[in-house]
Design a protein around this nucleic acid. Structure first.
Lengths: 223, 223
DNA sequence: ATTACTAAGTTACGAGTAA
DNA sequence: TTTACTCGTAACTTAGTAA
């Protein structure tokens, strides 16, 4: 997202456009942003196109309201600032247990991962990940987590293929300590994968669909 | 300030550059910001020129630290987001009493102001403002206050000159209710002016140099 | 490896203006 | 009054490089 559009979105939020439609002309917006009416108008059109705001044409002025997508972007921004100025905090997710397709087992059978996990985390992971699906709305938290260094497990190659780098964060699932593993690059999945020396599914005594509460510690690194 | 520079400044803050020098190459910054190495390099130069960061050239990479000016800008941004998502909050200042140059008395002798104050605030202001000097570091709070609508007293003209619009906010000075008056446009002064139906200086029993504690209510409008 | 210059390409801006 | 188009110009970006 372009930085200048974020600026405008924030301005609209300050004017109360998150929970209400706000009646504001492009000229008024231009004055707030110290730009021209034309540019403000263009920004509004761009935000609309990106589905970050909705517009209706009022009798004279336009009525603008920020969409959920738009509010999500601002929330993420807010969380970033919070992390800059507030004490390091934990990030919470509510999700529910799902079955992996066995990929976890496949990956955790790779020596390249096992050895690095053992070296950095001090345990040999149970062969298989605990998979938790998180709601779409939490995706901004995920993006935030990825901004933090965590503990990086380097990529490696076998004779067959390359295994990408992953990032690890200390976490708890239903108050039980374990380690979140995220791909270091690439896209966001709605499935979080956790590893542990134990069989987490048994230890937690949970089955598919059960709600789980996750806390990710983004500050303290493993070891 | 340009929106894209703010973005970079925030990125540096997330990397811990507010309280420490951070060793980071322009290429690494470029990857974080999803732009080119050249652009990241240019941003760094611009931020340095604006005195928002300091730089040293390390053995290979540059060492970057955010200056107080830079941190102030980020803090203000943070406060804006806070106001978007948190419950309306009051803004506090600590300052000390100073003498006006008699301008307050002059302005408050103008019918154009008196009538509008009376109409909107329900009282005839005591002829003279209470002037409080606030520290330089609080200037970002002032900028934030100005983002809120408050109650606007319109500009008016006399035969001699034009008197600019002002914004009013409910406030307390040492727990005594009064009204903050700020010029609606133009620059920030380090002197806050308060009006009240009473002679505040007598009512509060304070003299020049005495510390005063101010709370500004940016949400609730007068009447 | 770095940083950062130049030059050319791309995008954004806003005056003028229509609807 | 509005919103938003066109289009000339200003600003920003980046490939190619030098140091």
């Amino acid at each position: 997202m372009k930085a200048y559009l974020l600026q405008m979105l924030k301005e609209l939020a300050l004017l109360g456009a998150i929970n209400n439609r706000v009646e504001i002309s492009s000229l008024e917006l231009a004055n707030q942003l110290e730009t021209s009416q034309q540019t403000a108008s263009r920004y509004v059109l761009e935000l609309d196109k990106l589905d970050l705001i909705t517009r209706e044409m009022g009798i004279k002025k336009q009525l603008i309201q920020i969409t959920e997508n738009g509010a999500d972007i601002l929330k993420e921004e807010y969380m970033q600032y919070k992390h800059i100025f507030e004490l390091p905090q934990k990030i919470r997710f509510d999700g529910h247990l799902v079955s992996g397709m066995g990929e976890g087992t496949y990956y955790l059978a790779q020596k390249g991962y096992i050895n690095q996990f053992h070296h950095h985390c001090g345990f040999k992971p149970f062969p298989g990940t605990l998979n938790v699906k998180i709601p779409q709305i939490e995706k901004n938290k995920l993006r935030l987590i990825k901004k933090f260094p965590g503990l990086e497990i380097e990529e490696f190659e076998t004779t067959n293929r390359t295994f990408g780098a992953v990032k690890c964060f200390n976490a708890t699932v239903n108050e039980t300590e374990c380690v979140l593993v995220l791909p270091a690059r690439g896209h966001y999945s709605k499935i979080l994968e956790f590893i542990s020396p134990d069989n987490l599914r048994k230890k937690l005594d949970i089955k598919d669909g059960d709600p789980v509460h996750i806390i990710i510690n983004i500050e303290k690194q493993i070891e």
